[in-house]
Design a binder for these strands. Structure first.
Lengths: 109, 109
DNA sequence: TGACTATATTACTCAATCGTTATATACTCA
DNA sequence: TGAGTATATAACGATTGAGTAATATAGTCA
């Protein structure tokens, strides 16, 4: 990536990161990695209140990360953008690398 | 990534995303992609106040993203974790993909 | 040492956002 | 239609974080 990113693009990227910067939203996304879930399912699985889950689902959907499907009384959400898992993976790898280096430094002192 | 991420790990990932969720910090990182810069240089290049830049530099350094080198009166910062550029790239690609699909949908309606 | 420069820190204001409680909306089924 | 269930929304209190202005710290050089 040698591109010269404009401020506008960086703003959009920041917005995307902001959406992913909430533990509960990450938990929701991670849960949905197991496939489509209803709001009730999610509410139980992520152990949060229903209004709170609904609010975060809206944020994730507005960001284009989730797909919404209504069936009768229930609403089902699923992952619309798989790139988020790549992002999490890259972050996890970087964090592991960092911890490994810190451990190395500690061992030498 | 089929791993079952614990809440603790997701919290750490969220923290990392939070660090990257500020336009000014992204601008600083992007500027540093051109190589090590002093605080004064950065302050001019990202067009922000010196105290503000210093504050964000501290946040980025605490997160392990930047390396700090002091030479006399000046302090030089450089990228310590290249993975951030991968992250930005993945986000940019996803945003482009999304826009492309939206354009396609508009064209058919 | 004293003036100057570079960087960091503190105290403050303002805006954004999380989670909660209460309530609204909308679908289903008897 | 009316009761019951599922989801969304509104209003609120509390916290967090960005940017600024003022100041502290620390290095350089005459």
């Amino acid at each position: 990536m040698k591109t010269n990113l404009s401020n506008e693009v960086l703003n959009l990227v920041a917005v995307r990161f902001k959406v992913l910067a909430e533990p509960l939203r990450l938990r929701i996304l991670h849960t949905l990695q197991g496939g489509e879930k209803s709001v009730t399912d999610l509410t139980e699985m992520v152990e949060a209140s229903q209004p709170n889950v609904s609010k975060h689902l809206k944020i994730l959907q507005d960001a284009g990360l989730l797909h919404r499907r209504q069936n009768g009384n229930a609403v089902y959400y699923s992952i619309a953008d798989e790139s988020i898992f790549t992002l999490c993976e890259v972050v996890c790898d970087a964090l592991q690398e960092r911890l490994k280096n810190q451990a190395k430094i500690l061992a030498f002192e």
